[in-house]
């Protein structure tokens, strides 16, 4: 099986200062990769390189032949803290903007409207479609951006900390939704919440200046020690988890 995305010897950063060096990773169909690592370790940088927002200094990222590179089949949910919440835009328009990812979309206007409204309805936010984003709660905001990421029917879904500013109920909903979506699409998820990650993802990528890939969702102390991957641990009582002591 050929990978959807193949990252080879990737070095990438800002203003000639590398954040990530010599990263190798293959992303296959139905993968569910949890990306963990400390702040400033390069998690978001990795996502941006995959999305084509940052040019590699060295190495390359290639997409499988059947994936039209210009019409990227990638759904992207950025960190909401970077979104201007006072911008005059409605929920409906934010979701509609997700279709930019599907550039040669020739859907007629009516079909488009039905498609957007159906997705909003599945996500339980149809009733707020005409609200400005500034009027939403953290959970509603994340739902809107999840819809924007999904509206283009992506083959790969990239989420950058979708569990910030949200309530527990949304978090549960989000992860069970991701599990269902994972039957058809590959998911790359960045999160600080190691407990949640290890109970939903299939594999783990530990990013801290470089990348170490674990073909398992169980994080052990040895792995972390060996790979010099200091991370913050949040424990949960009601889901399977591994609690680790502080390490360097």
């Amino acid at each position: 099986m050929k990978p959807l995305i193949k990252i080879e010897n990737l070095t990438v950063g800002y203003d000639r200062i590398p954040v990530l060096e010599n990263v190798n990773l293959e992303i296959f169909e139905k993968d569910f990769i949890g990306v963990i690592g400390p702040n400033g370790g390069g998690k978001t940088t990795l996502l941006k390189a995959i999305l084509g927002l940052l040019k590699p200094t060295r190495g390359k990222i290639t997409f499988r032949e059947d994936i039209d590179n210009r019409k990227k089949p990638i759904g992207y949910l950025p960190q909401v803290r970077h979104i201007d919440k006072k911008f005059p835009i409605t929920v409906y328009d934010v979701v509609r903007s997700g279709l930019l990812m599907e550039r040669r979309n020739n859907l007629p206007a009516a079909a488009l409207k039905t498609k957007i409204e159906q997705l909003l309805s599945e996500t339980g936010i149809l009733n707020i479609r005409n609200k400005a984003i500034g009027e939403l709660s953290g959970g509603q905001m994340q739902r809107v951006f999840l819809c924007r990421a999904l509206i283009s029917n992506p083959k790969i879904l990239i989420l950058d900390e979708p569990d910030t500013f949200v309530d527990n109920r949304f978090e549960g909903e989000l992860y069970s939704r991701l599990s269902r979506l994972n039957n058809d699409i590959a998911i790359i998820l960045v999160s600080h919440d190691l407990g949640t990650i290890s109970s939903y993802v299939k594999t783990i990528a530990c990013v801290n200046g470089d990348l170490h890939y674990h073909r398992s969702h169980i994080i052990t102390q040895e792995q972390l020690d060996g790979y010099n991957c200091p991370i913050q641990i949040i424990s949960h009582g009601d889901i399977p988890h591994t609690i680790l002591k502080h390490h360097h």
Binding site: L53, K71, K72, Y76, P78, H82, D93, V94, M101
Partner: peptide, 19 residues
Amino acid sequence: FSKILFMAFDEEFARAAGL
């Protein structure tokens, strides 16, 4: 109109989409 709106709102997302 739509492209101006989407770019003004989230420039990074628009760039990722190849605008």
